[in-house]
Design a protein around this nucleic acid. Structure first.
Lengths: 116, 116
DNA sequence: GGGGAACGATACGGTAGCGTAACGAAAATC
DNA sequence: GATTTTCGTTACGCTACCGTATCGTTCCCC
């Protein structure tokens, strides 16, 4: 799709996608929440609270809260690690995968419109 | 830059940019705020509160609040319209332009890394 | 010029995020 | 086996956003 995207076009793409996202998605995830979600789904597991906190450069409560919220939305799940019961392993869900798949398609669609 | 971006790669790009943004930018704009900012800077003026509200599909107080916040951050300014003093015209600022320019560069840089 | 419409801002109660600090449970260390 | 460390969560006070409703100002129109 996008070929030779300029900075301006890149911003235009961001604009289109953001706009669409604001319009249709009532969920309205924070930038941080989205970053966490993407990290969980795009980087090979396992994912832990502390690992995500380190990767994003935020404190642990931020991760816990984000997981609470996104858990209620059905986008992620948590399970205790049986090998080290201090750890919590973050799991993906079908809804979460669909959510991101939808976002990916949106980017592509807008990117295509952007370069036409 | 990105050539033949797949949905997965598009998500990867979003991931990288979001991650970077979370890391370095303390401002942490809402998705809505970012959409408003992009609208102001990428679409030809004039911009009004009601116009932005309609374009984004949100209520007017949302726009007013967002302009308050981003105004304090120096990203936008407001001026009363002298021809119709009921209106408020939203103006761009140097800082706002720099902010988005930075974001555009970030997208390009990450997009390049994405397809390497 | 008086009644109504349009525009943006404000008020209000509620919700959700933040950072710092402390907590309980589990593992590691000695 | 007691102490220390690690891990995730919770508590606290605070800030910022939300939606609905209302307000003051300005313009429009008869």
């Amino acid at each position: 799709m996008p070929v030779d995207l300029t900075p301006t076009q890149a911003l235009g793409l961001w604009h289109e996608v953001t706009l669409q996202q604001v319009h249709q998605d009532g969920r309205d995830l924070t930038l941080r929440q989205l970053a966490i979600l993407l990290e969980i789904y795009l980087v090979p597991p396992p994912h832990t609270v502390r690992g995500l906190a380190a990767k994003l450069g935020v404190t642990k409560p931020v991760i816990t809260r984000a997981l609470d919220t996104m858990g209620e939305l059905g986008l992620v799940t948590r399970m205790r690690d049986d090998r080290d019961r201090r750890n919590v392993v973050i799991k993906r869900t079908v809804d979460g995968a669909l959510y991101l798949e939808h976002l990916g398609d949106l980017i592509i669609a807008r990117g295509r419109a952007q370069t036409l």
